[in-house]
Computed example of a mutant assay.
Amino acid sequence: MSKVLVTGGAGFIGSNLVDKLVKDGDQITVVDDLSMGLIDNLPQNKQVKFYHETITNHKFMKSLLIKEKFDYIYLLAAVASVADSVARPYETHQVNQEANIYILEIIRKYHLKVKKLLFSSSAAIYGSNPELPKKENSIVDPLTPYAIDKFSTERFVIDCGKLYGIPTVAVRFFNVYGPRQNPKSPYSGVLSLISQAIMHHSTFTLFGDGTQTRDFVFVDDVIQALILLTKKSDIVHQVFNVGSGEHVSLLQVINTYEIIAGVSLKIVNRSQRVGDIKNSYADIDKLMKVGYKPIFDIYKGLKLYWESLKN
């Protein structure tokens, strides 16, 4: 039995991770300000302790870390809206970077013995770099405060890990989807917008011709990667892409979803938005060498996602 901290644990990816950790028999502490997460996402289970608190509360975080002496720490809390980071760069920076560095600082200063600390970064750091597929050593070109904070925190986590002997690892999420995705989240992106349009028989706005491609990765595959890089390997001070390794066009996604839901989507076409990236998908060879095997293709994943929405 391990003691585990999950920041942002009431969110989409965090709560799916908590479910897995409960099955593993761990004692889990969740810190979440519920700005995007939902308390209902968490299991009613004595293994899970929940704090409705922001990770920017340094006094609270310091006390929690020193008192609990966690074995594993998953840093998933973030203001995940790119638009929000553009509108409020400093406030989002405090969550997306400063709070995470403070956690590292407490671990360093008080010599806390962590088995592994994992930070969740984002494919947004690749920006407009046209190289495909995106490799971990591809040139990064972060274009927004969100992407800048994700990249710089990723570097802090890796390099402070090396400097101070803290076992750290970082992941770059591509387009994660699945049950509990918050449709209000700008990060949940196109799949939840399509889902909402199908459920409410409303219109979906398609920007561009639909041939743009993305690496959609089902949340269960993401959880597999997180557990693999923390509990199931000794890998430290490295960063890994987390994707499906496949690139699927938006038109393919729409066609697949229409088949699964048995509904024709009402579509309004608009011209491509300025700054939208045409194609993006992950090279996942590095993660696969550690033992990662994505299980869900777009059909299998969307089917489970659709069933969860109907329920």
Rank of each mutant, 00 (worst) to 15 (best):
I158D: 04
I158L: 15
I158Y: 07
I158V: 13
D159N: 15
C160G: 05
C160P: 00
C160K: 12
C160A: 14
C160S: 09
G161M: 08
G161C: 09
L163T: 15
L163V: 11
L163A: 14
L163D: 12
L163R: 13
Y164S: 00
Y164L: 00
G165K: 07
G165D: 11
I166N: 01
P167H: 03
P167I: 01
P167A: 02
A170N: 11
V171F: 04
V171P: 01
V171G: 02
V171T: 14
V171A: 04
R172H: 01
R172Y: 00
R172V: 00
F173G: 02
F173R: 07
F173H: 13
F174T: 01
F174I: 04
N175P: 02
N175F: 13
V176M: 09
G178Q: 10
G178M: 08
P179F: 14
P179H: 12
P179D: 13
R180E: 10
R180G: 05
R180S: 06
R180I: 06
K184H: 12
S185E: 07
S185Q: 07
S185M: 08
P186H: 10
P186I: 03
Y187E: 13
S188P: 03
G189H: 01
G189Q: 01
G189Y: 02
G189S: 02
V190Q: 05
V190Y: 04
S192D: 10
L193A: 13
L193M: 07
I194H: 02
S195K: 12
S195Q: 11
Q196R: 15
A197T: 09
A197Q: 09
I198P: 00
M199R: 14
M199D: 07
H200S: 14
H200R: 15
H201E: 14
S202E: 13
T203I: 15
T203H: 11
F204S: 04
T205W: 05
F207T: 08
F207K: 05
G208Y: 08
G208L: 03
D209V: 09
D209E: 13
G210T: 06
G210A: 10
G210H: 06
G210Y: 06
Q212P: 02
T213Q: 09
T213F: 00
T213C: 05
T213I: 03
R214P: 00
R214N: 03
D215G: 07
D215H: 03
F216H: 08
F216K: 01
F216I: 04
V217S: 04
F218D: 10
V219S: 11
V219A: 14
V219N: 12
D220E: 15
D220M: 13
D221I: 09
D221Y: 14
V222D: 07
V222W: 09
V222P: 08
I223Q: 11
I223S: 07
Q224C: 11
A225E: 03
A225Q: 03
A225Y: 05
L226Y: 15
L226C: 12
L226W: 14
L228C: 03
L228M: 11
T230E: 02
K231I: 05
D234M: 08
D234F: 09
D234H: 13
D234A: 10
V236G: 01
V236E: 12
H237L: 10
H237G: 07
H237D: 09
Q238D: 14
V239K: 12
V239F: 06
V239N: 12
